[in-house]
Design a protein around this nucleic acid. Structure first.
Length: 212
DNA sequence: TCACTGATCGTCT
DNA sequence: GACGATCAGTGAG
């Protein structure tokens, strides 16, 4: 299977979306990181709905020195300790927000970082938010993805399995094949193979050669 | 297509 | 006061 050079044509009508139930989410962080590939993140933040199909995730585990939760609960990372299926949104590098899905039982600090996605719904709204980005780059990278969906600190702690401004929908197309690699941008525990991506996807972040 | 660099500021030590 | 789960812009190959 080869990928088209350009993104697939936009669907003529918006796809039907079914909200994921918490019971459907795997109880293990690594399993959830793989499960989320192909799943859909839906944002109903004004001015209109945007949604993307997840193509890249990273797992941050309990007792993981690279995880924000490693040193215990703080005001910033509190949402990592919510039971699985809640949004953990944090601000990074003075410029960007990143979206995570909490991934363990209540009181256990762990999350799955949603690193990249394939735009599905709301191209016009995404382009309003990221006017200079090429279509392929609209959601390629965690900061870009959050910007395209209008995600900021206000959505921190949001239940992604309940009705609200940000939620998860069931996959409509499973990932073709899942690749595994080291996580990106870390100085601690950098070698652990906890990054997962749809093989060959042009919407995954980083150099294309790494995503084959 | 990739590597490099500066910008930017909240959070924690 | 240092650092960071990043990005956009630039230039080289």
């Amino acid at each position: 299977m080869t990928w088209p050079r350009e993104p697939a044509p936009k669907p003529a009508s918006a796809p039907r979306l079914r909200r994921l139930r918490r019971a459907e989410l795997p109880r293990d962080s690594v399993a959830l990181a793989r499960f989320l590939l192909g799943a859909i993140v839906v944002s109903d933040v004004p001015p209109g709905r945007t949604a993307l199909r997840v193509v890249e995730t990273e797992a941050y585990l309990p007792d993981d020195a690279a995880a924000h939760s490693f040193r215990g609960e703080t005001a910033r990372n509190r949402s990592m300790f919510l039971r699985r299926g809640h949004a953990y949104v944090y601000f990074i590098y003075g410029n960007h927000f990143c979206l995570n899905v909490s991934s363990e039982a209540a009181g256990v600090g762990a999350a799955v970082l949603v690193r990249a996605g394939e735009p599905l719904i709301g191209f016009e709204v995404m382009r309003l938010r990221r006017p200079r980005a090429a279509e392929r780059d609209l959601c390629r990278g965690p900061g870009r993805l959050a910007a395209a969906l209008g995600i900021d600190r206000r959505l921190d702690g949001c239940d992604l399995t309940a009705a609200g401004p940000l939620w998860l929908a069931a996959p409509q197309r499973p990932p073709r094949a899942i690749g595994t690699s080291a996580r990106i941008g870390l100085t601690k525990e950098a070698e652990r193979p906890l990054r997962f991506y749809e093989r060959g996807s042009p919407f995954a972040s980083g150099p294309a050669a790494r995503n084959g």
